[in-house]
Design a binder for these strands. Structure first.
Lengths: 234, 234
DNA sequence: GAGAAATCTATAAAAAAATATCGATTTTGA
DNA sequence: TCAAAATCGATATTTTTTTATAGATTTCTC
């Protein structure tokens, strides 16, 4: 019973959330390797490059690929395809973004999301002065138009880049417009009905981790961190 | 043996990384509550607001606070102070940012980092045209000045907001300048010497989680997700 | 002031994730 | 062809994280 091929949902039962988060990291490395002409790659080599352990890489890859060969490793091209497929990068999803401030515009003009299977079709903002066309070529529309567009295009993903104080309100509006997955960049906790998923970027959490590391280093306590590889928490 | 008071490092042994990541989330909520005049709050109430379970909240808070009282809960003000202290928000850390593109500028002008104990003292960019003073009031300096400034100010935190292709090079330069904690926003894996910490924001990982949720919902498989609270993975 | 309710702490159990072990498979090269 | 080296997959163990249970403490109400 191998879950080798299929969409993300095909194997959701078998793939841990941690594995899911690592897949894009593997993918980035593998694509770099592709560029440099590599054809095969072993789990051990991947592990070394990423500072992980071999067994973990193998277990992760086992969730999406139908395996490598002893003495050879995985076929790079096939592995890339498998991961992309598992992550759904081969059928892009449309999304809207709300809040065309600095961060919103930065995300709009970041072209890389296409590669991740995400297509931001338009942005919305309450401030009419921001409306029009962004440098990125995306339309910035007034909030009033949001519901209609989301419904018409069956948009299921909403990206929230408004200040914390209005984030909940925006969240509610997006849900009302039929969005069921929210990517929240506002530093606040959002409430939504059951089975709406909210994924908040927790920048403060990241900072806390960096800060702890610094404390450990600067106060030079016993370094109970295996000192043989760069520290990279997730 | 209670780890009630102290810096982050005082209790690093006892606090899991997951707990560390949740602390800022509690803090955000607690501060909102403070605004609205609340004086005491119970672990159960916090859990409900954040969609967590009571026991988890209690265990997390036990790492930083010296406890609440039965029938009353925690004293809000004291709890806020304890968390802030545990996270080191009360002694700000200086940082530099490299890459004054859209994302870099967005982070520069986001005032909220001060609240998290992070103080971005300057930004650097190779493109001379970007140098000068940002709208945020922060200086944007040429890369050549970086090492000198970092050394002079003993900067230990570097924020990388350059394109993926130059991220490794920037990483190397920061390390050379004495930085030991890196916050990487470029979608690539960075290598650095031992005991340099790299915390990469894994946007693609977040997207993968949203995408999986969408797949589950849209293909309407059995909803093996406890359907009684909004889904909020970390 | 006694009993009930709420909430806490501490300890225990369960679940999830990471890591280790071991045997199997494929290629390489004598 | 056959042994050695590399690498894989499957299963087992350990560690980490989450959740549950049981008993103690504080406040409230009558």
């Amino acid at each position: 019973m191998k879950a080798g091929k299929g969409t993300v949902s095909d194997m959701e039962h078998h793939m841990s959330i941690q594995t899911l988060k690592r897949l894009p990291i593997y993918l980035t490395l593998l694509k770099e390797k592709q560029q440099s002409g590599t054809v095969n790659i072993s789990a051990g080599a991947i592990a070394q490059e990423l500072g992980l352990v071999e067994i973990q890489v193998r277990k992760d890859l086992a969730c999406v690929s139908n395996g490598g060969k002893p003495r050879v490793g995985y076929v790079l091209d096939a592995l890339v395809r498998d991961i992309e497929h598992a992550l759904g990068y081969d059928n892009a999803r449309d999304a809207v973004l709300v809040g065309a401030g600095k961060l919103g515009k930065a995300l709009l003009s970041y072209g890389g999301f296409r590669e991740y299977g995400l297509n931001i079709v338009a942005a919305f903002d309450i401030d009419e002065r921001r409306c029009g066309t962004d440098e990125s070529g995306k339309r910035i529309l007034p909030m009033e138009d949001m519901k209609e567009l989301c419904e018409r295009m069956s948009i299921k993903i909403g990206i929230i880049t408004v200040p914390a104080v209005c984030a909940q309100q925006v969240c509610d509006k997006l849900v009302d417009a039929g969005v069921i997955a929210l990517w929240n960049f506002a530093p606040t906790h959002l409430k939504a009905p059951d089975n709406i998923m909210i994924k908040s970027e927790n920048m403060a959490g990241s900072l806390a981790q960096l800060s702890r590391h610094l404390d450990e280093k600067l106060h030079a306590q016993e370094p109970h961190v295996p000192a043989d590889k760069t520290i990279q928490y997730n």
